[in-house]
Simulated assay, not measured.
Amino acid sequence: MRATSYDHYAKDNSALRVGELPDPKVAPGAVLIKVRAAGVNPVDWKVMAGALDALLDTVFPVIPGWDVAGEVVAVGPDTPEFAAGDKVMAYARKDVVHGGTFAELVAVAAEAVAPKPTALSWEQAGGLPLAGLTALRALQAVGLAPTADPQQQPGAGKTVLIHGGAGGVGLFAVQLARAAGARVIATASERNHDYLRGLGAEPVSYGDGEIERLRTLVPDGVDAVVDFVGGVLDVTVAVLKPGAPQASVADPTVTQKGGRYVWVRPNGRELALLGELADAGRLTVEVAGTFGLDGVGAAFDASRSGRTRGKLVIVS
């Protein structure tokens, strides 16, 4: 199969290569997916730089990419959940950094796979899993995750503050919190305020006067805080109601203030919920740009810039 890979750690794109690699094997309980689209996430180039070497074993050459949407072409023994021809998506992180999704084929554990939403294109579905699941898990940590039933939502009457609401994960968290029935206040740069209003959030600018601006909107404080940027504990403490929950995916020190530090896991059941919300019109995915396998480096550069709104997607 054709794939993008690297055979050593690098902090730039110099190690990336495109060429033929062996097709993945399909173990029991796994599915082989023909990749149609694979979302790019900052973790992809951070892993290439060795950022997770202390946590995960690495076997070179590494094919980067942890998001995928595509068609099942084969299933391993004892895998009745799926069949060849199924349209699926998955958060395909594995215990070993090696066989990722920036390739023509990828093998994924069946428990991480969910049906592709019919309402989303291949590119949109390919950009959903990691960021969408991260947002969902963060909202679960503060008790504000939506359900499939729009009449039974945990956010009714509650206000949540989302730090970094226009970022790659924050834009999903805003939509999911709104789907849960919550009032959403989201911090973001001025250029993203209209975008956030379109998602149903009330935007607040970062920087000097941020706490005062938030207190004007919520004089009695917010019922929960979810942080996707880090370095904002002072703001959180200033506007969070006493004893109310908070969670962060960016700042482990949140636990020192009684909050939850969140690390996303592959979960096909939860990913299927996101698919149901997308098909119900309660969740969408903005695609900022698409690249071929030979454009992974350009996609990484765009991701590193921090100026991209929406998902960058590799198509093969």
Rank of each mutant, 00 (worst) to 15 (best):
M1H: 10
S5N: 14
H8V: 02
S14R: 15
A15G: 15
E20C: 00
D23C: 00
R36C: 07
A38I: 03
A38Q: 05
D44T: 09
A49V: 05
A51P: 00
L55M: 11
V59A: 15
A84K: 15
M89E: 06
A90P: 03
D95N: 13
V106R: 02
A109Y: 00
V113I: 06
A114L: 01
L128F: 06
L136Q: 03
R137H: 14
A145E: 04
D149Y: 08
P154M: 08
A156W: 15
G165L: 02
G168P: 00
Q175V: 07
A177W: 02
A179E: 06
A180I: 02
V184F: 07
N192C: 02
R197I: 09
S205P: 00
R213L: 01
R213E: 00
L214W: 09
T216D: 15
P219Q: 11
V225H: 13
G243V: 10
A244F: 09
S248N: 11
A250W: 10
D251K: 11
T253D: 15
K257M: 11
K257T: 13
W263F: 13
W263R: 13
V264P: 01
R269A: 13
R269S: 08
R269V: 08
L271D: 00
A272N: 05
L283A: 01
V285D: 03
V287H: 07
L293E: 09
L293F: 09
G295K: 14
G297Q: 11
D301P: 05
S303M: 12
G310Y: 13
